[in-house]
Amino acid sequence: MINSLRKEIRYGLRNNTFLILFAVFFFFAFMTPVMLKILPEVLKSKFPGFPLQELVNMTQLGCLQSYMGDVLEIGTLLVSLALCGLLAQEIRDNTLVLPLCAGQSYSGIIAAKMLVFGTAVLLIPLAALVTDYLYAGLLFSFDTGILPVITGGLLQGFYMVYLLSLLLLFGTLTKNPIATALLTLAVNYGLYFAGSLLDIHRYLPSGLLREAQQLQNTIPLQAAVITLAIIIACAFLASRTLQTLEWSKK
């Protein structure tokens, strides 16, 4: 297993995958406080008397919530695009043929990817949110506790792990990185809108993001258990699908 983990870490480092994930989350973490800080100055000169304070929450909490919104809208898109080739590309390029012949297990391949990139997408959003918290605190004032921020960051990271499990499963089904990303995003946004429309976020992974955005230091237990079950099911199905693939292409 350590052998497979080392290979995935090398992949992440040498293909700049970790760097891209880091850049995506930290870009939003640094940009949202700056934007909220300079926005009133910009608008004041352009539209004197514009009631911005009433429309936008110009506090540390407002920064954090704005960051969370950006992550849901754009972060998930960028994460999907950055990680869509993790398995799909390997299947398409037949790079798994020699490892399989050498004895790599199907479940080991999936587990290594889940562990390495799961850890990355769990910890990087958390670190970015804490950075956002500190930066927003410096620019505005520290009006929010750190514990809700850590809980929110972990919930957001957990949601990204769910996204990763979808990418792996759809990768085995489509064998095409772009199709994998599109399918994952369709499911991701589709479930979010369905959750809003039917008011069932508490039963969906999107409930994690909703709760994270509230920054109230509470864990949506139902959504967390369901998300965990989906992650395990996706990893299992990805492993099973990998096992049934025909490596007949040259």
Binding site: N3, K7, P99, G103
Partner: peptide
């Protein structure tokens, strides 16, 4: 190294 250390070997 990766291929050789696969399958528990």
């Amino acid at each position: 190294e990766y291929l050789g250390n696969s399958g528990g070997r």
